[in-house]
Amino acid sequence: MATAAAPAAAGAGPLLAIEGLSKVYPGGTRALDGVTFRVERPEVVAIIGSSGAGKSTLIRCINRLVEPTSGSVRLSGLDLVSLSPRELRAARRRIGMIFQEFNLVDRLTVMENILSGRLGAVGFLAAWLRRYPPRDVANAFAILDRVGLAGRHDSRADALSGGQRQRVGIGRALMQEPELLLVDEPTASLDPKTARQIMRLIRTLAEERATPALVNIHDVGLAQSFADRIIGLQGGRVVFDGAASGLTPEVLTTIYGDEDWSRTIRKDEDEEPEA
């Protein structure tokens, strides 16, 4: 197994420690309210909750695409909330992010989109002229191969299907060799079969690279199938934090409200043979 994502100096702290994280948007919406949890080992953590529960806000507060109002976010001991803009950019390099709408730059090629994962590590001119170090180029080809897009490097991003576009999105995040993956509703724009393939790919890659992943997901079934641990958010607060197997109808009712959950909860591990 690769060790690229080994934590920094031993004893520097847990991989990710979030404490008392709150966010109040300018309009007054309290999207997060004292969120606290830790990720101590490489595991896939699904964050579930109804729409508006604060899942996207939580993920964006970690790499500060949204500025938290209060609280702390520590990545291997480094407090991200107090960083200067320059330090923040350096820290963002260590965190890969995958989006619901893929967020590829449509007019650029697959290769340029993948290589953009290295922007934090190369200078302005190199980025503009698309001159990346040979190691990065080779790595980009390897990643393309790994996410199942070998040979598509010169396609324009907008010429790909939804599933393929999300694979490019994943490739861009992997290109950063991240210590942490933030994944915001990776499958919400995909059909059910592609959604499972993409979730499986993310799960496998996170395991391969021993990288912890926080995955926002609204599909409880998918969350149970692919996550080790589940955090339930409701109204910006953590209302459940435990193993995926601990997701009972009672728990789901606290997260989502009253409903008949018996048919939603997966009884058996899925075993469809898929790529």
Binding site: L65, A91, R92, R93, N103, G117, L119, F124, R172
Partner: peptide, 15 residues
């Protein structure tokens, strides 16, 4: 979206 994604990689303003 793409702008946010590029920002999330740690890119500078110019990049």
């Amino acid at each position: 979206g793409p702008v946010e994604a590029i920002r999330a990689t740690g890119a500078s303003f110019g990049q």
